[in-house]
């Protein structure tokens, strides 16, 4: 028994034309076109590619709502068991259209398999709705993209029309959590993983670790006695009462506070709102986290030119990397405007 498949293509792969045809609206034809012909051939007997929806990339993106409504009506009429879009490679508007189609299909309970280059915005924006096979960045990789997509379709068919895990289905992770019953509990799995690691055996983490990039080191400061130094902390030391209402965990903001003329941060005037460590020792002497007293002395001794009048603070615990990155960017902008030479950052 073969399943009903509807294919989505843009104007270019539907052989209607290039950019000059990008304004064309939605059309439906009851046969495979272009890459669809190849897909139908490779999946002969397994799928019945009943029709192809085509649309110009510009039209789709400029009339997104109308386009999605049109797609919805067509999918309701044609009742596919599976939608295939693209492959869109790294074509941004095409990828966005493919993603929109997938979202419409998902709302109708229909799975969508696509092919995209990982950096295609359609993948980033629509990836919860889309099972996208990784492709190269241009149509030159069509010859590899189609067999990869065919494999994913075959997996879908053999797996009771479900997709399974990304590595099984051959698609890029969608960043969605799916509940399932594991055979062994988490403690056992974690210990097994650790033992494998200690023995140098392969192991698969169950949580993707974020990938961090690097920044090349700045040159050394030549003369600190003429430098203005700014103090920053992720240790949550802020004026008592927390005027900016910085969260104790997963901070969404940072504060800028004047330390002009202060010899030290006095207990009672300053406190920590950081939710990740015992605050008692810090609250007795906040300089233990934000060392204003020592920096002020070093300023008086002439070791540094000046301690910057503004001090920057946030809470580091549980704070998403994207938030922290945003704080860093904004703080960097303030520091640059103020003509600061270098910064000291403390973390608990």
């Amino acid at each position: 028994m073969s399943i009903r498949v509807v294919h989505y293509l843009n104007q270019f792969f539907a052989q209607k034309g290039g950019e000059e045809a990008a304004h064309l609206g939605i059309e439906y034809v009851e046969n495979p076109i272009g890459p669809g012909v190849q897909l139908a051939k490779m999946l002969e007997g397994k799928i019945d590619l009943v029709g192809t929806i085509t649309c110009g990339d510009s039209w789709f993106n400029e009339n997104q709502e109308v386009a999605c409504e049109g797609i919805r009506e067509l999918l309701i009429q044609t009742k596919p068991d599976l939608v295939i879009t693209g492959p869109a490679f790294n074509a941004g508007r095409y990828g966005m259209a493919c993603g929109n189609v997938a979202q419409v299909a998902e709302n109708l309970g229909i799975t969508t398999i696509s092919g995209m280059y990982p950096e295609n915005p359609g993948h980033a924006v629509f990836n919860p709705y889309l099972y996208a096979v990784e492709t190269g960045n241009s149509a030159a990789s069509m010859r590899k993209a189609l067999p990869d997509m065919v494999k994913t379709v075959e997996h879908f068919l053999e797996n009771d029309q479900t997709m399974g895990l990304p590595e099984e289905g051959g698609y890029m992770p969608r960043r969605v959590r799916v509940n399932f019953f594991a055979e062994e509990n988490g403690a056992k799995r974690a210990v097994d993983m650790l033992l494998n690691r200690l023995e140098g055996k392969p192991f698969t983490p169950e949580f993707d670790m974020p990938v961090y990039d690097r920044v090349p080191p700045q040159p050394a400061v030549e003369d600190l006695s003429k430098a203005t130094i700014a103090l920053i902390t992720s240790g949550g030391v802020i004026p008592a009462g927390n005027p900016d209402r910085i969260e104790s965990s997963s901070a969404s903001k940072f504060g800028i506070y004047s330390i002009e003329g202060l010899d030290r941060l006095e207990a009672g005037d300053w406190e920590t709102v950081h939710g990740g460590y015992d605050p008692v020792v810090c609250n007795k002497d906040p300089n233990r986290v934000a060392p204003v007293d020592a920096l002020r002395e070093l300023e008086k001794e002439g070791r540094i030119g000046k301690l910057h009048d503004e001090y920057f603070a946030t809470v580091g615990t549980g704070t998403p990397v994207s938030n922290a990155e945003g704080f860093g960017k904004e703080i960097a902008m303030h520091l640059q405007k103020a003509g600061i030479t270098a910064a000291i950052m403390t973390s608990t």
């Binding site: 990039d213 690097r214 920044v215 080191p217 700045q218 040159p219 050394a220 400061v221 920053i232 990155e325 704080f327 860093g328 960017k329 703080i331 960097a332 520091l335 640059q336 600061i340 030479t341 270098a342 910064a343 000291i344 950052m345």
Partner: peptide, 10 residues
């Protein structure tokens, strides 16, 4: 890292 992009930071 964002601060290191514009000035040295320890």
């Amino acid at each position: 890292k964002e601060i290191e992009k514009v000035m040295p930071v320890v």
